[in-house]
Amino acid sequence: MSIAPFHTTLSLLTEPETDTRTNLRTGRAASPVPQPGAPAKAAVLTLRGVEKSFGANRVLRGIDLVIPAGQFVAIVGKSGCGKSTLLRLLVGLETASSGDIVFTDEEGRAIGPEARIMFQEPRLLPWFNVIDNVGVGLGEGISRAEARARAEQVLWEMHLRDKALDWPASLSGGQRQRVALARALVSRPGFLALDEPLGALDALTRIGMQQLVSRVWRELGFTAVLVTHDVNEAVHLADRVIVLDEGRVMLDLDVPQAHPREHGDPELARLEGRLLSAILGTQ
């Protein structure tokens, strides 16, 4: 099983783009599985004067941001800059000491924070098989049969359908993160938070997962916020990179290149260099 991540990566690299596109958008490809619900509307996130302190430690010192619907934002910065805390505020795991975080749709109507998060570790329930783990993403008030049907659809999209009845313990690290991604997306959320979800993967699996995340984001159109320490990953995935330093936004940089992006693009390398020197220059 040690070579599995390599295979996973290969399958993602060699996968025909058009094929997956139809699957995700319309579910109309040669699949006998049920149709998913309509994709949720992408969320607009508005942060006004958000502060967060833990005791005397001011982790976030006044964050003002507007993240338009469907934008992919990466937040980078040194350890302890407050980027993980900001993400935990966005998904409601912490509450801000002051300031507002508002989720709206594109017309400005307030929507519930239908937030999903992917952590660095997959956090799958070891006593549920893969399909029931994905079903957890649908929340309460849904029949087991329907949860399974919708979970199966997403597993099919993630090329994990043959793993549906396996225990998480029997999967490779990359497969577990794909199951976690399936669980996050099965409810078709308007907003997905990613807390260094690829940090623990090996280099090749990581590239494969980056392409998968980028692909599902383009096809489902949700708003995404990625926290990462990897500037290269940030410029390859995001439309916009925000550098945090000591709880403040130090740099807010657009990455206008079209998706999907090639590894080795000189313009991306230039942006990466600029970001790195901004982060390191603050030492």
Binding site: R116, F119, R123, V136, G137, G139
Partner: peptide
Amino acid sequence: VDRGLIEMGRIYGMS
């Protein structure tokens, strides 16, 4: 019990 799993359950709206 793994605190991470409980946190996950909360985010996914478990009663």
